[in-house]
Amino acid sequence: MRSKSFEGMACSIAGVLDAVGDRWAILILRDLSLGLSKYEDLRKSTGITHATLSDRLKHLEENELIERRQYQTGPDRYEYLLTRKGRDVILVIQALAQVGDKWAITGNAGPPLKFINKNTGRPVKLALVDDKSDEVVRLRDVQPQAGPGADDLVRWRLTKFDQR
């Protein structure tokens, strides 16, 4: 069961979490990013119940992270594809994988899935980069700052960061 909506909260993180919905939806997005697109393939990969899968697919479609396309008639069958917005959310999933791999969350056998540059075959990782120079920035050198959409609660949170 999904929790209460974050709608109206001045927080981009809450907005993405609201659009995704829950952990099942994350796994569905993972599978879509790996090329699975058919309902039964998504069900087999996740082990999710029919009711939950149908609900999550509908939620992801309503939030424009995926689109449903008919590929067969009589009976009607659909495939599910990531939208541009959905492909951007895959960065969150890759970040989760990167942290899970670093800390061996699934065990010591090594990463269950690797991401590589298809042109070089070398592993890739997510990093913070300076918007102008494209230089890598260390996490300890990143500081949050109120943006144009900040409300009083965001500004209050930032006062706590400044006190660290």
Results as ranks from 00 to 15, higher is better:
46 T>K: 04
54 S>K: 05
83 T>G: 06
76 D>Q: 12
91 L>I: 12
34 L>N: 11
42 L>W: 07
40 E>M: 12
82 L>W: 06
109 A>Q: 13
117 N>H: 10
42 L>C: 09
56 R>S: 09
87 R>K: 13
47 G>Q: 04
53 L>W: 06
104 A>K: 15
55 D>K: 15
85 K>Y: 05
66 I>P: 02
92 V>M: 15
75 P>L: 05
94 Q>H: 07
97 A>Q: 10
74 G>W: 01
118 K>Q: 05
64 E>H: 11
70 Q>K: 15
88 D>C: 08
32 L>E: 06
91 L>Y: 10
31 D>S: 15
88 D>L: 15
96 L>I: 14
47 G>P: 08
77 R>D: 02
65 L>D: 01
58 K>V: 00
108 N>Y: 06
68 R>Q: 13
81 L>G: 01
98 Q>K: 09
76 D>C: 01
35 G>C: 06
83 T>K: 06
38 K>V: 09
73 T>S: 02
72 Q>I: 02
47 G>V: 07
57 L>I: 06
74 G>P: 00
56 R>K: 14
73 T>A: 03
97 A>T: 01
87 R>A: 12
103 W>C: 03
53 L>M: 11
79 E>P: 00
78 Y>A: 06
71 Y>C: 02
75 P>E: 11
55 D>E: 10
55 D>G: 02
79 E>H: 12
78 Y>C: 06
68 R>N: 01
85 K>Q: 14
36 L>N: 08
83 T>I: 09
110 G>E: 12
50 H>Y: 10
44 K>P: 01
32 L>P: 02
62 E>N: 14
92 V>E: 08
39 Y>W: 13
65 L>Y: 06
58 K>H: 05
105 I>Y: 11
